[in-house]
Design a binder for these strands. Structure first.
Lengths: 339, 339
DNA sequence: CTGAAAGCGCTTACAG
DNA sequence: CTGAAAGCGCTTACAG
């Protein structure tokens, strides 16, 4: 039924060795004549080497595994897009695993990926990983490079992909101060997921650098989604402590905050200025357009693809570290205060 | 280096046949004693059968391929989430391919997936597929089931997963009419991508059924994203033909339309009522909250996973068809007109 | 320049 | 109840 290398060899009147060598552009030179004949019958039979037979020998699955907490989250889908774009151009494919924030699934997928002989694994995770993952013999032995997109949470000395979140929020806060704001609220993440501590630190340090006293009551923790932003902003508003600006840990929260502010009968930016973080495309179309800190998620993913392939092809070399810049996108959600 | 079935056989003092049979729970019963001994040494050596060797024989890669036009699009990421959730529970994994709307890549990925011996393929596509895909011997011979998520665009007589888009938009339009609206604009998709003709048809038929004359000038075509909605709505507004309501082909367009309406100095819903389509989570937090037609994308994906696995395990049976209901989510973007 | 043979690590008739 | 042997479809020394 299935056409094998033997069929091709017979049809071309050569040995399977010859077919294999020619197909893999290997060493010994064959006469142009037999080469042509082989290629021709390969084409004629539309022959493709069996993937599994090939892999059993070469151990090159040309596959990497990627584990994310939530494919539908804009951040991760953008990351996946970047990784995939790079892999694609090198003939690699991605086995995608979605954990739905289940830490147990994370480990289960990791094991399964290894069993399937992927050549590398990328894990995007907010978690401190178990030793079963980070100290796995195949990882330790550099058999299967592991790249973590965890904001540097798990200690390691190579393959750190970071974003200048601190500087981004610092700049945003500075921008607010430059515009005359002195009472600035902050919506930070809640404890059980990604720890975005760089962001709140950038905020606090900037306040300090410019002699503005921190007011704990103006800092609220909430989930990193629209609803979280909505509720967090409401809690802030209900305190009746006046503030003129609000910095949100991500854009989704800012979207929710807009809603809360509007419902409270206030306006952005006339009553409260808002700044987000991420630079989602959607923020351009909010009304007013959101001023936000852009981070290059696609590029981070693309680079992750680059680094993992690099690590696969040169197992001896260290995986590089890289830090990506952020950029304050100035739009219409911050009011210039004159006082 | 690598521990093989032979190592286990030797260590347990049995044959490789025995080890293989026991591990795969096959036929002949072995004494409880040897079974225990085998299991024990398997555990001791932490042995796992080589994936490729196993697959070369069984031809069961326990892998399906999924091709989408854009992972970052909410629709597709939600679909992926649904498919993955089902696969996961059956030990299957997904090779994800992102075409970035490149039709050539679509075919390339399809071939590559086949070469990698996936057991089934799901393609989400707005395209009329080439014969190289739909008439591929492996597909025709039911060797590799192919499931299309194409809104029924490619003719076939099994595996049609559809959503009641027509009814959804019809209901939405009816809702508008019930609220006193008579001049209703419509923002439809532009020609070169998904053809969402069910939606515009639902709209037009509803108008007709309730004796409202269609006005071509009130129908604009635009890309199915935020920007498209923004520009389309602007074009509508610039015509200076008064209308009291706007139906958008999807939620993203509605988001853009909100922006255009606000910028024109008008208010939703006081001046113009707006209805979207999709039911994205974000629409709950728009201000005012968007009234929209919900479609169960995750469920569609989950069912796609179910059907593809079903087709793999029972190649003889037809892949079922299924149509999913939509539901009008009534919120705050439609005004009751009293006249 | 080319081929016979061994071997990758499994599973599966087949025989006992 | 268990094992020897063939075979899956390749690639890779090795020999000539």
């Amino acid at each position: 039924m299935k056409i094998t290398i033997r069929d091709i060899a017979e049809a071309a009147g050569v040995s399977t060795t010859t077919v294999s060598q020619i197909l893999n552009n290997k060493g010994s030179r064959f006469s142009e004549e037999t080469r042509a004949k082989v290629m021709e019958t390969v084409k004629k039979f539309n022959y493709q080497p069996d993937f599994f037979a090939q892999n059993m020998i070469t151990k090159k699955s040309k596959t990497i595994g990627m584990i994310v907490p939530d494919v539908t989250d804009f951040f991760f889908s953008k990351l996946i897009e970047g990784v995939e774009a790079y892999l694609n151009s090198f003939g690699y494919m991605m086995l995608l695993c979605n954990t739905s924030h289940d830490k147990l699934l994370e480990e289960k997928y990791f094991e399964e990926l290894l069993r399937r002989s992927v050549e590398g694994i990328i894990i995007a995770t907010p978690n401190m990983l178990n030793d079963t993952i980070t100290k796995h013999p195949k990882v330790q032995g550099k058999k299967v490079p592991l790249l973590l997109m965890d904001l540097g949470k798990n200690p390691r000395n190579e393959g750190k992909l970071l974003v200048e979140e601190y500087q981004g929020v610092y700049d945003a806060t500075k921008y607010l101060i430059d515009n005359g704001h002195r009472t600035i609220a902050f919506l930070r993440e809640v404890g059980d997921y990604y720890q975005l501590s760089e962001r709140i630190t950038g905020f606090l340090n900037c306040l300090e650098d410019y002699g503005i006293e921190e007011d704990d009551r103006l800092i609220e923790s909430s989930p990193l989604d629209i609803q979280g932003g909505y509720q967090g902003a409401n809690r802030l508003l209900e305190k009746n402590i006046p503030f003129t600006a609000l910095v949100c840990t991500n854009d989704q929260m800012a979207i929710g905050a807009y809603q809360a502010i509007t419902e409270a009968g206030l306006k952005v930016p006339d009553d409260i200025s808002v700044i987000g973080f991420d630079g989602l495309e959607i923020t351009r179309y909010m009304s007013p357009a959101l001023t936000t800190v852009y981070q290059p998620i696609y590029d981070v993913g693309y680079t992750a693809g680059e680094f993992i392939i690099g690590a696969i092809e040169k197992p001896a070399s260290k995986i590089p570290n890289k830090t990506f810049p952020t950029k304050l996108l100035i739009r219409d959600s911050v009011k210039q205060l004159t006082d």
